[in-house]
Amino acid sequence: MVKLRLRENENVQDAVRRFRKLVEHAGIKREMRRREFYEKPSEENRRQKRRNERRSRMNSASR
């Protein structure tokens, strides 16, 4: 959960900017996009498998 306290004499625009940064840093935005549509477990597993394969290829290429 992201909490934001307004500082003394802080503009609303500055507070909104800080809030957006906090939300982005916490990963809430990414999580919302991921949960926007239902993904079947098989599709999720396939996506994770591809990501792991890409990572292993990148790691082996950099060594």
Rank of each mutant, 00 (worst) to 15 (best):
V23G: 03
F19H: 05
N59S: 05
R5F: 03
A61E: 08
K49I: 09
N11D: 15
R20F: 04
G27Q: 00
F19N: 07
Y38M: 02
K40S: 10
R18D: 02
R17K: 15
F37L: 09
N59H: 07
V12L: 14
N45I: 06
E31W: 03
R63T: 06
N59G: 07
A26T: 02
K49V: 05
K29N: 14
P41Q: 01
R54K: 14
P41W: 05
P41R: 01
F19P: 02
V12S: 14
L6G: 13
N59M: 11
E39M: 04
S60M: 06
F37C: 06
R46H: 09
V16L: 13
Q48C: 10
R47I: 06
R20N: 11
M1W: 08
R46E: 09
R54E: 14
Q13F: 04
E31S: 04
R47G: 02
E24H: 06
N9I: 00
R47Q: 07
Y38R: 04
A26S: 06
A61K: 13
R55L: 08
V12P: 15
R34A: 13
D14M: 02
L4I: 03
L22D: 05
N52H: 07
E10V: 01
S62M: 11
R5A: 12
N59C: 08
R50F: 12
K3C: 08
A15S: 04
A15K: 02
N59W: 00
K49H: 13
A15Q: 02
S62E: 10
E44F: 12
M58G: 05
R30S: 06
L22M: 12
Q13E: 08
K49P: 02
D14E: 14
V16Y: 08
R50C: 05
P41Y: 00
E24W: 08
K21H: 13
H25G: 02
K21S: 15
P41M: 02
R46G: 00
R7L: 03
E24I: 09
N9S: 10
K40R: 10
R46K: 14
V23E: 05
R34Y: 10
S42G: 10
N9G: 07
R55G: 10
R50W: 11
R55P: 11
E43Y: 13
R54Y: 11
D14N: 10
K49T: 03
R20I: 11
I28A: 13
Q48G: 07
Y38A: 04
S62W: 12
L4K: 00
N11H: 15
H25N: 06
Y38C: 03
N59A: 00
N45W: 06
R18K: 02
A61I: 01
P41G: 03
